[in-house]
Design a protein around this nucleic acid. Structure first.
Length: 426
RNA sequence: GCGGGGUUAGUUCAGUGGUAGAACACCGGACUGUGGCUCCGGUUGCCGAGGGUUCGAAUCCCUCACCCCGCCCCA
């Protein structure tokens, strides 16, 4: 048997209804903030990712689906291509390629699949879905303003509330400018040198390879040592500090609660200043449902103009997981099951079904060879609200037996009134 | 890449060396123009794959595959 390959999966009803619900809510909320949808290709030149995400990140060094193209044209041969591991790079590429700033397109959102070749685990797949947005543009468009950061964060809080997710926590930090980070990294390394030997094996390795990761350590014995380490917040220059203070001020003013977390660091190279994460309990080891931050230098590093930006990506798989219970409620059940009874009644039923569907009634059709019992069984199994009997008697009388499957009440309804009768009961 | 758990009916699972099971689901009947509740009957399997031990393997051993959970890392 051929199965979906490791790390990929089929999304089936009724879950798909929940996915649609989530996506519809996101589109609706984003629209209120003047974001517009962009769809970029799911594969790009490999360089795009290695240059933006960072050559030394795990994503680029070992988690990308990359292959060599064998196109017909000479220019296509040997070109290295990669399935997008995230969507920010693609959006910024498109922003530059189409000079979107010339058209005032500064706020973009996307919904779509991303790919990483990592070991699957709870809420983590090789094809996973992200809902994200990027506010990017020349500083005159407000793209560098702390007000933009606050707006994006407030938008996310609104979306989560709208989805009925109330127990979220917004963790906020500033990772400063590239200069601040370089200085800080040096200071952190130096501070770790004398104490690393006393820490857990993981931390000893991190101290050398990726010092920032030491802050993720969960070993209790290491915590006192970690507490003494320098924090990025102590290394922010004046403009970065003012920016961060302003973001916090606006968030407080609009009533979006947040927690400062100076251990929060972002893995991707392009992040600057504001970094954030929304977490949600009861999701296991992967408790972050969305993350993002500011990337003021990304456009320039990809050969574009100075275009500061801030963005985020929501892990849709995880978000849906935390809503899982409501999947059945969101799926729309048939309003009516039409039970044709006897020879010739399929034709009659098809005509009726067509009429009703034009009135936005959800109709499921039976078959004239089914016994009535069978039709009723089918109807209640699929959760139809009504069963409609289409037999010779009904056709002759021009009125049909309509049974409410919940109450058991059955009435005779003239053809012209059927749609209204079914709708009114919903 | 590393560690742990798992794989038996459509689904959830029991079965630890001697005839493959239960519940639910599904199909049919009781009930030929009326579902749900009830009762009766029925179907369902290369027991993940391959090899080994044994008179005999779902069961013990080895190898592999796949799934899940976690680690590393991370939107």
């Amino acid at each position: 048997m051929i199965k979906a390959i490791r790390g990929t999966r089929d999304l089936l009803p009724p879950d798909t209804a929940l996915w649609n619900f989530v996506e519809a809510a996101a589109r609706d909320v984003f629209r209120a903030y003047n974001f517009h949808e962009i769809r970029t290709p799911i594969f790009e030149e490999t360089q795009l990712f290695s240059r933006s995400v960072g050559e030394d990140t795990d994503i680029v060094s070992k988690e990308m689906y990359t292959w060599e193209d064998r196109g017909r044209a000479q220019s296509e041969k040997g070109q290295s291509i990669t399935l997008r591991p995230e969507n920010t790079a693609g959006v910024v590429r498109a922003y530059i390629e189409h000079k979107l700033w010339e058209r005032g397109l500064n706020k973009l959102y996307y919904i779509g699949p991303q790919f990483r070749r990592e070991r699957p685990q709870k809420g983590r797949y090789r094809q996973f879905f992200q809902i994200g947005a990027e506010a990017i543009g020349p500083p005159t468009a407000g793209s560098e303003s702390p007000a933009r950061d606050a707006e994006v964060l407030e938008m996310l809080a609104t979306l989560l509330d709208r989805l009925g997710i109330t127990d979220w926590t917004l963790e906020l930090n500033s990772v400063g400018c590239p200069n601040d980070r370089a200085t800080y990294n040096e200071a952190l390394k130096n501070a770790l040198k004398p104490v690393a030997a006393k820490m857990c094996a993981d931390c000893q390795r991190r101290a050398v390879t990726n010092p920032l990761r030491v802050f993720d350590c969960k070993v209790p014995e290491d915590q006192p040592i970690i507490e003494t380490l320098p924090r990025i917040s102590q290394y922010l220059d004046e403009p970065c500090r003012r920016h961060f203070d302003a973001v916090q001020g606006i968030l407080t003013a609009v009533g979006v609660p947040f927690t400062l977390n100076d251990r929060l660091v972002r893995g991707l190279d392009y992040y600057t200043r504001t970094a954030f994460e929304f977490t949600h309990g009861a999701l296991g080891a992967q408790n972050a449902i969305l993350g993002g931050g500011r990337y003021d230098g990304l456009s320039e590093s990809l050969g574009g103009p100075h275009a500061p930006g801030i963005g985020f990506a929501i892990g849709e798989d995880r978000l849906v997981m935390s809503l899982k219970e409501s999947a059945d409620a969101v799926a729309r059940k048939p309003d009516v099951y039409i039970a044709p009874l006897g020879p010739g009644m399929d034709r009659e039923s098809a005509r009726l079904a067509r009429e009703l569907r034009r009135h936005d009634v959800v109709v499921e059709l039976g078959d004239e060879t089914f016994r009535l019992k069978k039709s009723f069984e089918n109807a209640s199994k699929m959760g139809a609200r009504f069963a409609l009997i289409v037999g010779e008697n009904e056709v002759k009388a021009g009125a049909f037996a309509l049974k409410n499957l919940e109450s058991g009440e059955q009435i005779s309804v003239p053809r012209a009134e059927l749609a209204a009768k079914i709708q009114s009961a919903s």
